[in-house]
């Protein structure tokens, strides 16, 4: 059923540390409309349902087709990309709120830098010798490619972080996303040395042991990345690595 308008409740916060509040908006409906179009409508005319003038709601977005990960927010309580959140599939009033596991910058904008910092910490790269012509890369079976490709689609959107019960103020768990990346890079035939460094780091603060096996991450991933497979696989790698390391240690 086409509706004439879309109602939204938006959690507003003027800046880091500011006190949040809720505002109610109504915008025109159109077929195929997504949450971002609603937010643009609000920016055009920032007036609440009660007729009170307010400031435009701030949100992050870029690609608008669910490949960049920028526009993740809580839509009716679930973390998802607001670009692919079509209003016709949502119960109204649509409730929009910022992710809760990251510091709020303003309104629906949060700071997810810690996810990129995790990639630094876990050496999420292939250690190439240089960008000069050095011949072809390693052969890779089509099957392994499919696994690597699945892991490589992670757009650092933070859905898995948001639903993970082990990520909160009382735990320093690095989260599922980066573990998927560790598996992705460990699958690359670029030498065991880097793999050892990644696994060693995985045994450090907030490492893989903090996973509580709730398996929410895999259910929340919009790109259907087999995060729990990755976690178990890296768990296995860490087990073997730790035992070997202990047996060989001087």
């Amino acid at each position: 059923m086409a509706q004439k308008t879309v109602q939204l409740r938006v959690k507003r916060q003027d800046g880091p540390g500011a006190r949040p509040r809720w505002e109610h908006f109504e915008v025109p409906h159109a077929p195929g409309k997504n949450v971002i179009s609603c937010l643009i409508d609000i920016a055009r005319k920032p007036v609440t349902l009660e007729g009170r003038e307010t400031t435009p709601v701030q949100w992050d977005c870029a690609c608008l087709e669910e490949v960049c990960g920028a526009c993740t927010m809580l839509v009716n309580g679930k973390p998802q990309q607001s670009c692919s959140s079509l209003v016709d599939n949502l119960e109204q009033p649509i409730e929009l709120a910022p992710l809760t596991k990251f510091p709020v910058v303003r309104d629906l904008v949060v700071d997810r830098q810690k996810m990129f910092k995790n990639l630094e910490r876990f050496r999420a790269w292939v250690p190439i010798d240089g960008t000069y012509p050095m011949g072809e890369g390693p052969l890779l079976s089509a099957e392994d490619q499919q696994v690597r490709y699945n892991r490589s689609r992670c757009m650092t959107c933070a859905c898995c972080m948001e639903v993970c019960p082990q990520i909160n103020g009382r735990s320093d768990f690095v989260g599922p996303a980066v573990i998927g990346q560790v598996e992705f890079f460990n699958l690359h035939p670029s030498g065991p040395e880097e793999m050892g460094k990644r696994l060693e780091e995985m045994m450090g603060t907030g490492g893989i042991h903090e996973c509580g096996n709730a398996q929410n991450c895999v259910a929340a991933c919009p790109k259907e990345i087999d995060l729990t497979d990755a976690i178990a696989e890296v768990g296995r790698q860490v087990t073997i690595f730790a035992v070997k390391k202990f047996l060989h240690s001087s």
Binding site: P165, A214, N216
Partner: peptide, 21 residues
């Protein structure tokens, strides 16, 4: 310590396993 460091809200897309947790 583990119990203290967890969250106890249920994620609607994954109720069964989240309840186990």
């Amino acid at each position: 310590k583990i119990i203290y460091s967890g969250d106890y809200t249920i994620y609607a897309n994954n109720p069964a396993k989240n309840w186990m947790y």
